[in-house]
Design a protein around this nucleic acid. Structure first.
Lengths: 217, 217
DNA sequence: ACAAAACTGAACTGTTCAGTACAGTAGCGC
DNA sequence: GCGCTACTGTACTGAACAGTTCAGTTTTGT
């Protein structure tokens, strides 16, 4: 099924692919049960691997957990880059697209579960919080600020501090949706998402939109 | 030290005071170490009580935990009521006061720790999330919406949906401060708090303030 | 003052689980 | 085929911990 030197979604070949299987299985088990209740045996059997093998790759359960979160953070920060690629659209449409992307990232059940997991294990892994923030929300914020800066340059926005404006956009968008999704573990309806998006875009333009008298040429 | 029928901060007398001591100690230990890593022995010794006594009051570690969170939620919802008691002040000053109160509630390390704890244990105690949300954030939102409604009646604000406006205020105020505080477990500087407050009040008035031509009599 | 009720402290049970040891086996280069 | 390395499966160790029990002590009500 996999002829010569093909590169798959999962990186390198044979040797390290098993490691990826272990990390995948570990993520799943950690998400399902939390760190404390997850047993290495369960991870091993979910990965189709013996416990001994896990311990040849990872020094301890803690190290495995750190590796899992590390990888997820990396994956997340890559996904965030797409915010900057909504350049061609008209302002309000671009904002709508960005809002949808952000809501996807924020509300994806898997991502919510990872957030919960990280928060849950902060006492055990204190440095994890900073890592997670720097590689997730901080990058989103930076990308969005860049977008704002570009639109300011085009004369479509009037903004003193792009970072603050970007923060306002994200904050308005989140509202209490994220909080509820995190706490009540329930999916957010499409209607609620659309409402949040439209309100946010409207308010943002009202706040920061350049007056139409200096309209585009 | 405690003559005849005096009522203290801790409720009823002798019998039930020990229960309060247990709950207090349990809260402390849970906050310090998380539910999973907290041992009943540690709670017992922190409460200055034998483990057997704990098990006469609470059926299990889970029941004890539920009692702890229950009590904190109750205490929290009481504290939230103060938002409505900033009526006499001029609008922007009242908003500033409210912002300070909200930031206090949101950023108090103890409250952050409780939030972490609740989020962490959601898989084990699913109903807890709803309880917590309903008795905390939901009540704050309701109170703030009432405040907005009152100011609309006075002609100081122009707002279509007070609940939405209130949500915007809270969202803008939180920004990423709460997230960072939650994740990085670091205190937020007074400077950052003041900056968030001033920005939020400014933006809110810009968005929802009634035009000054219909000024107060 | 005295009996009943509540509490202590410490030992004990039973379970769960991280981490290890090891004997046997599959894969792979040569 | 030969030998080497990596993997499996299983069984084991040791520690941690929830929850119980109980003999002896303190507290409380009357």
């Amino acid at each position: 099924m996999n002829p010569a030197g093909e590169v798959e979604h999962e990186p390198r070949s044979g040797a390290a692919r098993k490691t990826q299987r272990i990390v995948n299985a570990a993520l799943q088990v950690f998400l399902d049960t939390g760190y404390g209740a997850a047993t290495v045996d369960a991870i091993a059997s979910a990965a189709g691997v013996s416990k001994a093998t896990i311990y040849t790759r990872f020094a301890s359960k803690e190290a495995l957990f750190a590796a899992v979160i590390e990888r997820e953070c990396l994956a997340c920060s890559k996904r965030m880059a797409v915010v900057e690629q909504a350049p061609a659209l008209e302002l309000s449409q671009a904002l709508r697209e960005i809002a949808d992307m952000l809501l996807d990232i924020i509300l994806l059940p898997r991502n919510l579960a990872i957030q919960r997991l990280v928060i849950a294990e902060l006492p055990r892994f204190p440095e994890l919080g900073r890592t997670f923030y720097d590689r997730g929300p901080a990058i989103t914020l930076k990308n969005l600020a860049n977008f704002v800066r570009a639109r300011v340059a085009r004369g479509e926005l009037r903004v003193a501090d792009p970072a603050v404006a970007a923060q306002h956009f994200i904050s308005l968008l989140r509202g209490d949706i994220q909080w509820r999704a995190l706490m009540e573990q329930m999916a957010v309806s499409d209607t609620a998402r659309r409402a949040a998006r439209e309100r946010t875009v409207g308010v943002f333009i009202q706040l920061y939109g350049a007056p139409p008298d200096v309209a585009r040429p």
